[in-house]
């Protein structure tokens, strides 16, 4: 869960230390169905004044859903801490961002949130319908029904291609939906000979894919990154979150996503050495 802080014209719960108490997402589950995508947020709210506003139907929990791939932006409102919202599955694809807020349902004169920061003194504020009273952060998920974020095929965010140059260093192209590792024509020929063979998979992952994925993880973690709107970016980010790897180093993350390519590579090499020794006997 990420929270962005900003300057509001009135104190906002969850925005730095504007207001004491708590507004956060206690739990968030989503279900990807063939026809529908269901969002199940559970909110935790501790602030007397805002709790009262919700009870008096002057404010609501708001879930804002946005999908940059399909021109989709909508919001759902509820006054319950546990809710269920349904989106038609065909309205969204790839990365979907979900923001969590508490908003005023009507104009409120002399709004004075409880436990507001001493800097606000005894000031009261006139808020308007729609004004944000609490921010609970945002998160994202991948709306692809056939895609399991816990076991993503590497091919869903990375591909290896033949370049237009004959020899020289392989290159990385981050500008498309998938990261492309672009091999020289010479390297591609060798790659084409060995790809798809069980014995070469671990070695290819360790030597070709792993270093690129390490770099990609750094790109994903760069908050001001250049590739934030790319599908590979959101898939890797979702995988890191789904596997609980947020606190691991980029090198460790990449190894876990690829399911320990070094170990598989060493085993393949051992296997090849054994074959060679057998042949030499």
């Amino acid at each position: 869960m990420k929270v962005s802080t900003k300057s509001f014209p009135h104190p906002v719960l969850g925005n730095e230390d504007d207001v004491g108490g708590e507004f956060k997402l206690a739990e968030f589950r989503y279900e990807l169905g063939k026809e529908e995508v269901v969002l199940n947020p559970v909110f935790s709210l501790k602030n007397k004044a805002i709790e009262d506003l919700i009870k008096k139907e002057k404010a609501s929990f708001v879930v804002e859903v946005e999908c940059r791939g399909t021109f989709y932006r909508t919001s759902f409102s509820s006054r319950e801490t546990t809710s269920r919202f349904v989106i038609p599955a065909n309205r969204i694809r790839e990365r979907v961002t979900v923001g969590f807020y508490i908003c005023a349902d009507q104009d409120i004169a002399n709004y004075r949130p409880s436990e507001s920061h001493p800097d606000y003194g005894s000031n009261a504020f006139d808020v308007e319908a729609g004004d944000v009273l609490g921010v609970g952060g945002y998160c994202s998920f991948i709306a692809e029904k056939s895609y399991d974020p816990l076991r993503p095929p590497v091919s869903s965010f990375m591909s290896i291609r033949e370049g237009t140059f004959h020899e020289g260093s392989a290159q990385i192209d981050y500008t498309d939906d998938k990261i492309a590792i672009v091999l020289s024509k010479s390297d591609w020929k060798h790659y084409a000979d060995v790809r798809g063979q069980k014995v070469s998979e671990g070695m290819l992952h360790a030597s070709v894919v792993l270093p690129v994925l390490v770099d990609a993880v750094y790109q994903v973690r760069d908050e001001n990154g250049y590739y934030i709107d790319k599908n590979w970016h959101s898939r890797i980010a979702a995988t890191i979150e789904a596997k609980g790897l947020q606190d691991k180093s980029a090198y460790e993350v990449a190894q876990k996503i690829l399911e320990y390519p070094l170990d598989r590579s060493f085993k393949s090499i051992e296997g090849l050495l054994e074959v060679t020794e057998d042949e030499s006997v």
């Binding site: 509001f8 708001v62 909508t74 919001s75 807020y101 908003c103 319908a129 729609g130 004004d131």
Partner: peptide
Amino acid sequence: YGTRKLITLNPEQ
């Protein structure tokens, strides 16, 4: 929109 979720307003608002 940065501080006010216009998307939550009713048609008249």
